[in-house]
C-alpha cells in the first residue's frame, strides 16, 4: 500500500507538468526514470514502451490556453511579439513546477533564448520516498518529461515504479451519453429493495 502512493505522486507530477503541454499539443512528453537507483532493473524497461503509452495523454491538456495567451500578447503589439509570447509561455510550466527557481526571470529577459532548458520540479516526499519531475523546454514547447527521483533506493520501490509508471496510459474521461447495452458500475441495490426499505422505515415511524 505504501508503494501505491509512489505512483500516485508520480502521476501528480505529470499532471502539474501537464499545464505546460498546452503550449505544444503535438509534442508528446515521455516519462522516464533518469536516475535509476539500481543499475539494470529499472530504467531500461521503462524507456521503450512509453512513447506509445503516453500518446493518448496530452490531448487532455486544455488547448485553448494557447490562444488566450496569444491574444493578450497581440494586445501589447510589437515586432518581438512571437518571442515574447514564447517567453511568456515558457515560465508558466516552470513556475507551477518549480517554486524553487525564483531566479528564473533572468534568462527570460535576455533576447537570445537558450535552445533547450530543463526545469526541475520540487522534490515531493512521502513515506515511500522522494519524487521529482523534470521537464525539458525547447523554444517554448515542452519536449520531454522525466522523473529525476522516483521512490526510494530500495529494490522493491524501484521495481514497482519501473513497472507501473510507464505501463499505464493517462486519459481524461468526460461523462457523455452513448448508446450502450448495459452499464458497469459498483453494485447497486434494486429500486424495489430501496422502495421496500422506505416502506419499512415508514412503518417503523422513522
Amino acid at each position: 500500500m505504501r508503494a501505491s502512493r509512489a505512483v500516485v505522486v508520480a502521476g501528480g507530477c505529470a499532471a502539474i507538468v501537464g499545464a505546460g503541454w498546452a503550449v505544444s499539443p503535438k509534442e508528446l512528453p515521455t516519462l522516464d526514470l533518469v536516475a535509476p537507483s539500481t543499475p539494470e532493473a529499472s530504467a531500461t524497461p521503462s524507456a521503450s514502451p512509453t512513447p506509445t503509452a503516453t500518446a493518448a495523454a496530452s490531448p487532455s491538456a486544455v488547448p485553448s490556453d494557447d490562444e488566450a495567451e496569444d491574444d493578450t500578447d497581440d494586445d501589447k503589439g510589437g515586432e518581438r511579439d512571437e518571442d515574447e509570447s514564447d517567453d511568456a509561455a515558457t515560465p508558466q510550466p516552470s513556475r507551477t513546477a518549480t517554486p524553487v527557481e525564483t531566479a528564473e526571470p533572468d534568462p527570460v529577459v535576455t533576447p537570445v533564448e537558450p535552445a533547450t532548458q530543463t526545469f526541475d520540479g520540487p522534490v515531493v516526499t512521502n513515506p515511500r520516498g522522494q519524487y521529482q519531475a523534470r521537464i525539458t523546454v525547447e523554444g517554448g514547447t515542452v519536449t520531454d518529461v522525466q522523473a529525476v527521483v522516483a521512490g526510494t533506493q530500495d529494490a522493491q520501490s524501484v521495481q514497482i515504479n519501473a513497472k507501473a509508471i510507464p505501463i499505464l496510459r493517462d486519459e481524461v474521461l468526460a461523462a457523455q451519453t452513448w448508446d450502450v447495452a448495459a452499464v458497469s458500475g459498483a453494485s447497486f441495490t434494486s429500486p424495489a429493495f430501496i422502495e421496500s426499505l422506505r416502506g419499512a422505515f415508514g412503518q417503523a415511524g422513522l
Binding site: W178, V180, A181, A182, V183, S184, G185, A186, F188
Partner: peptide, 14 residues
Amino acid sequence: RRIGIADPRVTGDP
C-alpha cells in the same frame, strides 16, 4: 456489445 462505464458520481441504477 457496447458496455458503458458508469460515472462515479451516479448513485442508484446507472
